[in-house]
Design a binder for these strands. Structure first.
Length: 213
DNA sequence: ATGACGATTTACT
DNA sequence: GTAAATCGTCATA
């Protein structure tokens, strides 16, 4: 097989999500990210794969729950103004990190908060990141990554991974999920969690959860 | 310089 | 059900 064909095959089989996937509005991206895989490659080479099953959409300027509400542009929110596919990791409550995927294009602040997922590969490394052991927890522990901060801890995501290009970075990437997975779940939408301060926007159904049927 | 608060989690009454 | 933990960020001065 010649090199040119290898490249073509690789491209057709490429699982990693490219720029175009993220070039849309936050709500569309939030739905599209359900079932995709978030893959973390640790410094020691161990790999953890999580299937995303809960997301929230944050629109930019108009969305009162968004960090970019009113066009607020600070050192913290800067990644939201970047290209779609950029990461936005922020620190909150003095102890937790949350991971977002930036949607849309440059200077269009919008992002999707990854609120939860299921570890489907690298359970040992995932448990280690949480300080859990197989002895003290079930073999396939629920509750490992069912929350935005828990997911970050499970994948060892902190601000060193802020503002990276998720379409290129070697340590954190997104891949399309398995065909068929969507046939096994139903997606519900609810108001977003923890944004009661956001007035009219607090009630909008911008949280998406995929549950097995 | 200061104060209020948070896109959360965990433990406890 | 309620509360504590814990500190970076942002608005105000």
């Amino acid at each position: 097989m010649v090199a040119g064909n290898v490249g073509h095959l690789r491209q057709s089989r490429e699982a990693r999500l490219g720029r175009g996937f993220f070039a849309t509005d936050a709500e569309t991206l939030a739905r599209a990210l359900l079932g995709t895989h978030l893959i973390r490659v640790m410094e020691d080479g161990s790999t953890i794969r999580v299937r995303i099953n809960e997301t929230e959409a944050y629109n930019g300027v108009e969305d009162r729950a968004s960090h970019a509400f009113g066009g607020r542009r600070t050192a913290r929110t800067e990644p939201m103004y970047g290209r779609g596919g950029t990461s936005y990791v922020y620190f909150t409550y003095g102890m937790h990190h949350c991971f977002n995927v930036v949607a849309g294009g440059v200077d269009e602040p919008a992002a999707v908060l990854i609120r939860g997922g299921e570890v489907i590969e690298g359970l040992g490394a995932a448990l280690a990141n949480r300080g859990w052991t197989r002895e003290k927890h079930a073999a396939v522990p629920a509750g490992l990554a069912d929350g935005p901060a828990k997911l970050c801890r499970t994948l060892a995501i902190d601000r060193s991974l802020n503002a990276i290009d998720l379409t290129r970075d070697p340590t954190l990437r997104l891949e399309r999920g398995d065909r068929g997975w969507h046939d096994e779940v139903s997606v519900i939408s609810t108001p977003r969690i923890g944004v009661d301060y956001a007035g009219e926007w607090a009630a909008r159904p911008l949280r998406f959860v995929a549950r097995r049927m």
